[in-house]
Amino acid sequence: MKVKRNFIGEKNLTRKVAAYRLAMEVVRSGNEGSIKKTVTAIRKLAKFAKEELEMKNLSKLQSEHMKAFAEHLRNEVGDADISKAHAANIISCINRVFDHYGRDDLKLSAKEEGLNRGKRYYNIDRSVSNQLHEQFTDYLSQKFIQTGDTRYEALRIQVEMERMFGLRFKESALHDLKGIHRKDDMLDVVKGTKGSQPREVPILSDKGYELLNYAKDFKNEYGFNRSLIPDDMKFSQWQNFAYGVIRDFNERFDCDYHFHGERHTYAQERYLELTGFDAPVRSGFINGSYLQVMSEYYGITLEEAKELDKEARKIISEELGHHRIDVTCFYLGK
């Protein structure tokens, strides 16, 4: 019978000494190699939690936080910051920590997250369907109407911005609705970006401007002076609220909605706009077969189809805030 322990954790597990103490407790065999790998994994998760989630104690982690961590690992693999084998080792070691504390709800599957060892596991569609998106945003609207709590409407606007502009959760939450360049149809993304690197994303339709105008009017009407986060809340508090809403929604309707899926939808829609074809992960033409279909449809050479695909992926990569087109394989398939 598994002994359930209280997962209190060290206050700062980014520190090697603190991570080592926890690893020593978890790796009961005392194997030095396993301890070192576990220390690396613990520090990796703690650094992500501290910098991206503003969370100092891992005891506050929820399943949605771990989904975001998996996304973070996928991005690092795609950017060639770490190998996929390294990512799989991190997940394995972190799962051992959670198993020790009886937190099966926080475990990740390397295979399901596209991070298993061996063949690169790109072709998983993680986008949010129109039906699920509408179901979740309708849920938020109803909560706002029923309770009068403006946080639900602010969160709904944030979700729409993620889908419309391909923003990360943190980017949409911290956006101040400034930096809208109507002349060039571009939107500045400055706060909450990966590596604090600002970028511009395109405003592709009137619906984009309508959303931004509504968001600005909402902020003014309800006294949101900084961003879509209420003035009396820190980002970490807002994130906990948002993830709690998702958890309640998923449990109530037996769904699997996650914020980062909106970015996948954005990437796939952009690929369709730029190439005229559904992304491989959506069309089912995978393992390069989509290039042959593209070539035959347009009456161009296979090399020209590859160039069209490459150029589209490059644009999408930049719009998502990445610097390598390889990472688009996780969004679009290959």
Score class of each variant (00 low, 15 high):
residue 266 Y to W: 10
residue 274 L to P: 10
residue 275 T to F: 05
residue 249 F to D: 02
residue 244 G to R: 06
residue 242 A to N: 06
residue 266 Y to I: 13
residue 270 R to W: 05
residue 255 C to L: 07
residue 280 P to K: 02
residue 274 L to A: 11
residue 261 G to D: 05
residue 245 V to R: 09
residue 256 D to L: 13
residue 265 T to I: 01
residue 271 Y to I: 10
residue 260 H to I: 06
residue 282 R to C: 04
residue 275 T to E: 14
residue 242 A to H: 02
residue 261 G to P: 07
residue 245 V to T: 14
residue 260 H to K: 08
residue 275 T to Q: 12
residue 276 G to M: 07
residue 262 E to V: 00
residue 253 F to C: 05
residue 275 T to D: 13
residue 250 N to K: 03
residue 271 Y to M: 13
residue 245 V to H: 08
residue 269 E to T: 04
residue 269 E to A: 08
residue 281 V to Q: 11
residue 269 E to G: 02
residue 261 G to W: 06
residue 257 Y to I: 14
residue 241 F to P: 09
residue 261 G to V: 07
residue 249 F to E: 04
residue 247 R to V: 05
residue 278 D to C: 06
residue 263 R to I: 07
residue 264 H to L: 07
residue 254 D to W: 01
residue 266 Y to T: 06
residue 275 T to V: 05
residue 248 D to I: 06
residue 266 Y to K: 02
residue 270 R to I: 01
residue 262 E to N: 14
residue 255 C to V: 09
residue 252 R to L: 15
residue 265 T to H: 11
residue 266 Y to N: 04
residue 282 R to N: 06
residue 261 G to Y: 05
residue 242 A to I: 07
residue 248 D to S: 12
residue 249 F to N: 00
residue 244 G to T: 10
residue 242 A to T: 09
residue 268 Q to M: 13
residue 246 I to D: 00
residue 260 H to Q: 13
residue 245 V to W: 08
residue 254 D to P: 01
residue 247 R to F: 01
residue 280 P to C: 11
residue 251 E to P: 00
residue 253 F to I: 02
residue 246 I to P: 00
residue 270 R to P: 01
residue 249 F to T: 02
residue 265 T to V: 05
residue 275 T to Y: 04
residue 260 H to V: 03
residue 265 T to W: 07
residue 248 D to N: 12
residue 264 H to C: 14
residue 271 Y to T: 12
residue 254 D to E: 15
residue 256 D to Q: 14
residue 260 H to F: 11
residue 277 F to K: 09
residue 257 Y to D: 00
residue 279 A to Q: 07
residue 261 G to A: 06
residue 282 R to G: 00
residue 275 T to G: 11
residue 280 P to S: 05
residue 248 D to Q: 11
residue 254 D to I: 03
residue 265 T to L: 09
residue 241 F to N: 09
residue 272 L to F: 14
residue 280 P to H: 04
residue 247 R to A: 14
residue 278 D to W: 02
residue 268 Q to K: 15
residue 259 F to P: 00
residue 256 D to A: 15
residue 279 A to E: 13
residue 280 P to Y: 08
residue 251 E to Q: 05
residue 282 R to M: 08
residue 276 G to V: 06
residue 265 T to N: 05
residue 252 R to I: 03
residue 273 E to T: 05
residue 278 D to T: 01
residue 269 E to W: 01
residue 245 V to P: 10
residue 270 R to Y: 03
residue 246 I to A: 03
residue 247 R to K: 15
residue 250 N to G: 05
residue 267 A to K: 07
residue 279 A to T: 07
residue 273 E to W: 00
residue 282 R to I: 13
residue 257 Y to H: 11
residue 250 N to L: 02
residue 255 C to H: 13
residue 262 E to L: 15
residue 281 V to E: 14
residue 260 H to T: 04
residue 265 T to G: 08
residue 259 F to T: 02
residue 244 G to V: 10
residue 244 G to K: 03
residue 265 T to Y: 12
residue 277 F to N: 08
